[in-house]
Amino acid sequence: MIDTLDKPVTLGNALPATKNEKKLKRMLIICSKGKLEDVYAALVLANGALMEGLEAKMFFTFFGLEAITKKKADHLHTATVGNPAFMPGMPTMVAGLPGFEAFASYMMMKEMDKLDIPHVTEFLQMIEAGGGEIFACKLAADMFHLKKEDFLPEVKDIITVGDMYALADGEGTQIIFI
C-alpha cells in the first residue's frame, strides 16, 4: 500500500493489480484424454490463462497425446457412445453405428467454426505464440511408440512426470487435470 499513498485514491481502480497482489501466477494443464471436448477444454483453459497474463504449461499424456500428434490433432472425435449428455434419448445402438461418431464430430467442428474457435493445431500455435509451453509425457509416448518427429512442432519436449512437476514449481501455481 505504501507505494500508492502519494497517488490519488481514485487512481488505484484504474491501475492494474501490482504483481504482489496477484496470487495466481501459473497454470499447469494436464490433458489425459483424446476426446474433442476434453482437448478443447484443456486448450481453452491454457489459452485463457495466457490471455489473463498468467503463465501456461500443458502436459499431454495417454490419449491426450492424440491432440499433439501431426496425424491426429485436427481429426479428434467426440464420443457418441458412453456419453449420456450427448443427444439424450439417442439409443446407444444407433449412436454406435459406423460413421455416426465421425458425423457427430464433424457437426461439432462446424458449430465451433461458427464461433470462430480455431482448430487444434492453430490453437496450439496460438498458445505457443502467447508464451505457453507444450509437453508430451514420456511414458505414454513410449507406450504408443511415438517419437519427437510424430508430434507437432509446438511440442517443446517429451518429459517425465518428475519434469512435469518441476514445471509447476514455484508459488502461485495451480494444476488442472483433464
Partner: peptide, 26 residues
C-alpha cells in the same frame, strides 16, 4: 486475440510482446 493475429498488423506473438500481462485486456 485470434482476430488481432489475423489483422495483418501484428501476429499473435508480437501482440503478446507489445502488451504484456494479458494483451487483449490491456
Amino acid at each position: 486475440i485470434r482476430k488481432v493475429g489475423a489483422s495483418g498488423i501484428v501476429d499473435i506473438k508480437q501482440f503478446y510482446e507489445l502488451f504484456p500481462g494479458g494483451p487483449l485486456k490491456v
